[in-house]
């Protein structure tokens, strides 16, 4: 029953190559790319996440064991920075900007509309892993707020009314 504990709880695993984790080689290649330098831990985690879309428990264990860094420290870094996710994410990443300029132009209304449309809250992923909805503090296109970014594409001057129209275009 231990496996079913809620939340991003990590457990110590027996070894690196345990069943179910098929990305051992990718992770090893990324660590190699940075020569396993401890100072490169954040970059390594970023690259792993770019490849696997999130940081699976097994990957963190592998980083810890290969690089000789205590798992607690890897975990502490992985949970400190907002860019890292310990939960699997959807195929499409929706980032709603909640920067000040977007806020005064109604970003929260827009966000609520997306939440209603997708039936998830911010930080969550739809059941079919199609969308993950996250918020950002500022994307730096304040003049065009409120702004939403989907998979790197920017939508400026968004309104609640445009939400379904745009989301429906994604497969």
């Amino acid at each position: 029953m231990n496996e079913k504990r809620p939340g991003p709880v990590l457990e110590r695993s027996e070894g690196i190559e345990h069943a179910g984790f098929k990305d051992t080689q990718e992770v090893a290649a990324i660590i190699d790319k940075y020569k396993g330098e401890i100072g490169q831990l954040i970059s390594i985690l970023q690259d792993i996440q770019a490849k696997l879309y999130y940081l699976p428990k097994e990957a963190l264990v592998q980083v810890s064991e290969t690089m000789g860094i205590p798992l607690s420290r890897v975990y502490s870094v992985a949970t400190f920075f907002k860019a890292f996710s310990l939960k699997p994410r959807g195929r499409h990443m929706i980032n709603v900007c909640l920067g000040t300029a977007c806020h005064v132009r109604g970003a929260s209304k827009l966000l609520e509309q997306i939440e209603r449309s997708l039936k998830i809250s911010r930080g969550e992923t739809t059941g079919d892993f199609k969308f993950t909805l996250e918020t950002l503090n500022c994307m730096g296109c304040c003049a065009l707020g409120p702004v939403v970014r989907i998979d790197g594409r920017y939508f400026g001057q968004m309104s609640a009314g445009k939400v379904d129209l745009i989301l429906n275009k994604y497969e």
Binding site: E37, I38, G39, Q40, L41, I42, S43, L45, Q46, R73, S76, V77, F80, F81, K82, A83, F84, N137
Partner: peptide, 24 residues
Amino acid sequence: KEGAGAFVCGEETALMMSIEGKRG
């Protein structure tokens, strides 16, 4: 060095911790 989404890393000592691969 790419940041990883932590506002406090704009603070100089936190920023340097982050460059060193630690919690910022």
